[in-house]
Amino acid sequence: MALTDQQYFTLRRLQSLTGVLPVGVFLLEHWLTNAFALGGAAAYNEKVDFLRSLPYLFLLEIFGIFVPIAFHAALGCWIVWEAKFNNRALPLRQNALFTLQRVTGVLLLFFIPYHVLTTRFAEWFGGSTHDLFALMQDKLQNPLTFALYVAGVLAASFHFGNGLWGFAIHWGLLTSKAAQRRWSLAALLIALAFGLTGINSLLAFGPLGGLSPLRLQPAAATGGAPHAAAPAPSGQGATR
């Protein structure tokens, strides 16, 4: 496969761009949707149903999510493959972030397909996606699965937050050491915010429930919603 220099540049810049647009934007949407789990089964499933009802959903899923992630990850693997990590000899902050960016990328490479296959395509394996809240609640009861999800959430949070910083440099936005240092902190704070809210949403599926600034009327969530009559396990989270 012989690439011209111009094609090479475009591919590398698209790898960078896709990390933010559309994949990063999708991640934000995904985090927001999942945060509705804090409002209980009905609130959550209502948002899921809304997403499922989007026009051109199929095209959005293929070209807005799948293709960009696959492209970003494929080139990402090549980038990881070409790197020669030297964190032991040079234990510097930015060098550690460089390696973590790649480690979390590879982790996501395994986590994302696992996650998508067991939720979006759970039917292929005999599951039901009718009540997604119940499905998640059921899965996350297994401590091992829960730990895996925490790892996935943290990896995606760090990868996206720190990725924004790399993105800003690759696109020529941060052009001095002082600016880069300033925004590195901001990027890590974004990562932290994603990490904490992501885990909070995971907790919302469990017996304890998440910490919710949003859960305005938890009781209301059980009445009138399309999935109120869902099987036993889903009832708990909703009324917490």
Binding site: Q6, N86, L90, F98, G166, H170, T175, S176, K177
Partner: peptide, 30 residues
Amino acid sequence: MGRGGITACGNAQNCAAVCPKEIPLTDAIA
């Protein structure tokens, strides 16, 4: 802009950290 040019920089920023002449290489790259 060609293959192996500036796009292959991954911002590990070790270069500027070890430069004995303290050249701001990462500023140049950005």
